[in-house]
Design a protein around this nucleic acid. Sequence first.
DNA 1: AATGAAATATAGAATAT
DNA 2: ATATTCTATATTTCATT
Lengths: 158, 158
Amino acid sequence: MQLDAFDRTLLNLVQEDCSRTAEQLAERVALSPSAIQRRLRRLREEGVITRDIAVVDPRKAGRPTFFIVGLHVEREQPKLLAELRRWLAAEPHIQQAFYVTGEADFVLVITAPDTEAYDGLMARLVTENVNVKRFTTNVALGIIKRGLTIPIPERPDA
Amino acid sequence: MQLDAFDRTLLNLVQEDCSRTAEQLAERVALSPSAIQRRLRRLREEGVITRDIAVVDPRKAGRPTFFIVGLHVEREQPKLLAELRRWLAAEPHIQQAFYVTGEADFVLVITAPDTEAYDGLMARLVTENVNVKRFTTNVALGIIKRGLTIPIPERPDA
DNA sequence: AATGAAATATAGAATAT
DNA sequence: ATATTCTATATTTCATT
């Protein structure tokens, strides 16, 4: 699916705020509200926009602690890795998981109400996934920024 | 602000999908649609819900590369750290930034259209922030999970 | 004080020009 | 691409507990 300049600015706008009305978006996109609605519907149907979510302020919702975790596996066997991936994806407290090059094999961003909960989670992780060799924990002392926005250049260059 | 059981389930639901109508939410929250709307409005006013955003599929929007970066600073002086924080927060390609304990001082999640763009960004980072000593890069080979959801227990335990 | 139900207003979806 | 209608949702108001 090809994205034109209109699609790209729309994507940038709804990544900031998806509660904007088509009319409000029309003030910034040189398109009629109905054209904007059609495009947004198409972008969602095509899976360019995968979902619309509310972002909650952690300080006002239980003050969870954030942990950045580097995971090291025993073997790089595809089967074992796929299993681990599924496990990570299914765990609600794991916000994000990347399979990476470099020192660690996986990097995780985890939220837990407290350190004990985190310990419990990681204990389960290592016992239920024997392929996990070890992990290194970084506790977040401060959250500077937290988002999923992918900046989309107005003009395509790919 | 105190969150009761209704607020908590609502928060869990809108973190999954904020495009649900009050009527749909009412099927799962034993409240009338109007009560639900009032609560959601209050949660947004109070800043418990900070914003509503569309999540874009990176594979369908330019296939950017994700980088997980560990940042090491020269000095831990509050003034210098605050400056760096501001710089990180202002940079659109930096999706997330945490100030952490452990080996690195900051952990960043960065998206860039390609490796050159990443190089350019990091070059700017180190030249414009002399307090940055060095950094370690992990390239994401695969994204297993990507979200901002904070699981909120139905019963408060804090 | 907060809820539920009915009123109005607004935005979205579909159709036609 | 705009204009119009139709439908659904959100917003407001009010009575009730």
